[in-house]
């Protein structure tokens, strides 16, 4: 009985120590990527290639989901607002919720599952097939040549994807509420313009998406680079990338929102 309690406590301690150790490893890896990212700016072609894979190929999912999220927001917002006779404020509702929250967060979640998982799987498989070791043997630093360009491509494409998501959502809401339901077009845009502020809303949303871009790609490259070099290990690392980055996005979103919108009327 007593031994069982001790071993239970021990297993908790072991898990905590291991997760802290892993966090430290991740931070050291992150610093290493930052230190070695000189190459990706000198040879920008590497980053452009990765921008194609993580940015351009994510466009379809971002555009379509943005459109549908905006359409649903427009429908639901209209349903609720018309009870209070203020259906003309639906533009404000759609724009504010997209620009402040849904644009950065949903775009980052989609990006994590579309591009983050691909980055992890690619790097993990390179490690499993000993391509990274081969590179190191040829005196090519795999972090500078493989990891850093993928990291920077993700950091660059994330804010752009979030902005595209928000714009598509606003036009999706416009499609449903103005064209299908018949809310006045002028009040849709003008109420939106009077409520959305450049600095408070758009700039803060942009900053949020930059943070998410760094978080998602840093997690993706870390999990890929530290994946056990087996088929099972790579699949586990890919799963962990999606789960961890989704949780980090949502947690980080709360913290950033608390800092940005506290006390702002």
């Amino acid at each position: 009985m007593f031994n069982r309690i001790v071993s239970g406590i021990r297993s908790i301690g072991h898990r905590v120590i291991e997760s802290i150790w892993r966090l430290g490893l991740a931070s050291r890896f992150f610093m290493l990527v930052l230190l070695k990212s000189g190459t990706s700016f000198r040879r920008f072609g590497l980053v452009i290639r990765e921008l194609y894979y993580s940015g351009v190929l994510s466009l379809i999912i971002i555009v379509v989901s943005g459109l549908f999220v905006g359409m649903v927001l427009g429908l639901q917002g209209y349903e609720t607002l018309q009870k209070y006779g203020s259906e003309s404020a639906v533009g404000t509702l759609v724009a504010l919720s997209l620009v402040r929250e849904l644009g950065p967060v949903v775009a980052a979640l989609l990006f994590a599952s579309r591009a983050g998982s691909a980055i992890t799987a690619e790097i993990g498989l390179m490690k499993a097939t000993e391509q990274l070791e081969a590179m190191a043997l040829m005196a090519v630093d795999p972090i500078a040549r493989i990891v850093a360009p993928r990291f920077w491509a993700g950091v660059i494409s994330m804010p752009l994807l979030a902005a595209i998501f928000s714009v598509m959502g606003i036009y999706g809401g416009h499609l449903v509420t103005v064209i299908f339901i018949g809310v006045d077009e002028g009040s849709y845009w003008s109420q939106m313009q009077s409520a959305v502020d450049f600095r408070f809303d758009i700039l803060n949303g942009f900053i949020k998406s930059c943070f998410f871009g760094v978080a998602v790609t840093a997690i993706a490259v870390f999990e890929g680079y530290n994946a056990p070099p087996t088929a099972e290990g790579v699949s586990g690392a890919t799963t962990r990338t999606v789960v961890t980055s989704s949780l980090v996005i949502l947690g980080l979103d709360f913290v950033l929102t608390a800092f940005m919108f506290r006390g702002v009327s």
């Binding site: 940015g55 351009v56 466009l59 752009l160 928000s166 606003i170 450049f198």
Partner: peptide
């Protein structure tokens, strides 16, 4: 082709940011 698609992507992204700040944010 790669350069073209990436350039297009960056242009679309910047256009989206411009629309957000000009049309939505009324900058």
């Amino acid at each position: 082709a790669l350069d073209f698609w990436v350039g297009l992507f960056v242009l679309i992204g910047i256009t989206a940011l411009m629309i957000l700040s000009m049309k939505v944010g009324n900058l």
